[in-house]
Design a protein around this nucleic acid. Sequence first.
DNA 1: TCCGACATGTAATGGGTTACATGATTTT
DNA 2: AAAATCATGTAACCCATTACATGTCGGA
Lengths: 201, 201
Amino acid sequence: MSLEHILLGLLREPASGYDLKKLFEERLSHIWRAELSQIYPTLKRLERRGLVDSREAAARRGSGRRLYALTKAGRQELHVWLSGPPQFADERMAWVAQLYFMGELEDLDQTMRFLGSVRAHFAAKLAALSAIQRMWTAADPRYPRDLPVEDLHVHFALRKGMCSLAAHIEWCDESVAELTARLEARSSGTSREPGAAEEAP
Amino acid sequence: MSLEHILLGLLREPASGYDLKKLFEERLSHIWRAELSQIYPTLKRLERRGLVDSREAAARRGSGRRLYALTKAGRQELHVWLSGPPQFADERMAWVAQLYFMGELEDLDQTMRFLGSVRAHFAAKLAALSAIQRMWTAADPRYPRDLPVEDLHVHFALRKGMCSLAAHIEWCDESVAELTARLEARSSGTSREPGAAEEAP
DNA sequence: TCCGACATGTAATGGGTTACATGATTTT
DNA sequence: AAAATCATGTAACCCATTACATGTCGGA
């Protein structure tokens, strides 16, 4: 299970389940997501297996707080995972499946709207990652040169996200352009279907 | 559930569970994957809900064969799905998480090997999609112009895959270049760690 | 004769989400 | 006084995977 390994990775410094949820949101939002209801049992399982240990600590607010830390066995397990082959999950892209079948609707305007939503979605995500990159650049104008090894890998992951999203957006634009050509050809050329006449010269 | 809708989408022509599994592999391999052990119960559920109906048919080989077909309600349900907003699943990319944490290993050669595997993986997938595109081009030199609406959407989905994969590969190359610069700087510059000396002039 | 393709399923398990349940403390 | 934040968990459910179970038919 990857969540277990990711938790081990995040536990470089001791953290509570609640903390880890925040780390997911702050640092890994473009890579992985996890709910508290999944994190808590997983931490317990890791502790039973001796990969982490825990101690009680004062809560910053509210009641008790349980801090988890990597054990030697845990760090070793993490290294095994990191040294292994890349784990490719077969992506299930429901939105692409929707597009694949959308010809069924015979409604190119719907396709156009759909592509608009998709583009907006990815543009928003890209903006978020770009903001992170701008922060790095502002902090060090030589970025990404001279990054410590740790940060270099974080940088790689960030760039992965940015490159993917940029490609998605370009693909949206390519597709919209193809669609637009269709729609223009249809409105100016032979109109088999009687519809509203537009752009009369 | 998206699998249900995808099955409805595939059931333009009547098909058996076995057929549908093949359709997944032939047409949707870059978008979705499903096992027979998931397809069979899902078809039964769809039938109970009246979205498909089934009849027995002669097997091409072996024993009986159950052919499923869309009902009106099924087609309507499909259209609802297709008309709705894009369904973005939050991707869980274990391999990116691995890379994110890989600084922990302090072993840039491992990172290099990792990126090599990743690149090879995506290059193979891209080759498969390129082959499909070449078939379309061979069949019609004007491709993708003048594609029927149905095929246009399939084309969009294909291009989505190709663009994503190409971007991944470019990202790999960018990352490898950055890593290479690191390694060269390290081997020619101050070598804090005593290692094997290479490239003596 | 045995292998591979055709064909259909069930059971156990795993991984994840949603909803539910609780309670302290700080900020508005 | 109410809302947000800190903090921890459980239970039910859903989707998917892996392993298991069964049987026919055609070709090598």
